[in-house]
Amino acid sequence: MTALLSIRNVHKSFGSNDVLRGISLDVPRGSVVAFIGASGSGKSTLLRCLNLLEPIDDGEIILDGTDISAPGFDANVARRDVGLVFQSYNLFPHMNVLRNVTLALTHAAGIAKDEAESTAKELLDRFGLADKARAYPEQLSGGQQQRVAIIRAVALRPSVLLLDEVTAALDPQLVGEVLDLIAELRNSGMTMLMATHEMNFARDVADTVCFLHEGTIHEMGRPDEVLESPREERTKAFLARTMRR
């Protein structure tokens, strides 16, 4: 089975802070990978590197056979194919929901306005936000904002969707609606990489769980393996600390 996304020996440091020290991972099409790990272990950094928001220092990111991290490769094209959703939603506050979703379609992907709007409306409708198309982000709940942010990324039909702790900023009662959306995307075959603190969700949705520690993938495997019976001491310690909370 060839991987859709191949992360090969990726290194990234900020000054003297070596955040990623050789990350390698193959992600088959349609599979879901969850990254867990302590705060500061580099989960967000890895996802930002995969979206090319941060240039990597060494290694390769191969998407569908193309090295998108190669110097000179058009990062804007790659970014449309690797969606990224942030913990803090980051919707554009001066645009309504519809325009938030269509902006990149019309301006980055070059799709005609009508077509972009019908795509956006279809998606909003499918995920129960049709009546919010004309609303502004500040008029929405956190859960609704995050669902719009995910739809905004999905509208570009990316090959891979990266989700960076998309429920971490939400009130507990709003987490469910966002997780439902992600579960539905998974069922429709979307390849996803997500950083998360939701261990139960990782167990339910992910095909693979990676435990990041000191800039490397310290342990990885099926969710039941890594989360129920971890082999590594550090993984055990991390899970013990997380579960206690």
């Binding site: 979206n51 094209v77 970014r79 980051n90 990149a104 980055a108 905004r152």
Partner: peptide
């Protein structure tokens, strides 16, 4: 970051 992540220049 959000705008760039969507492929806008």
């Amino acid at each position: 970051a959000a705008a760039r992540s969507l492929g806008l220049t």
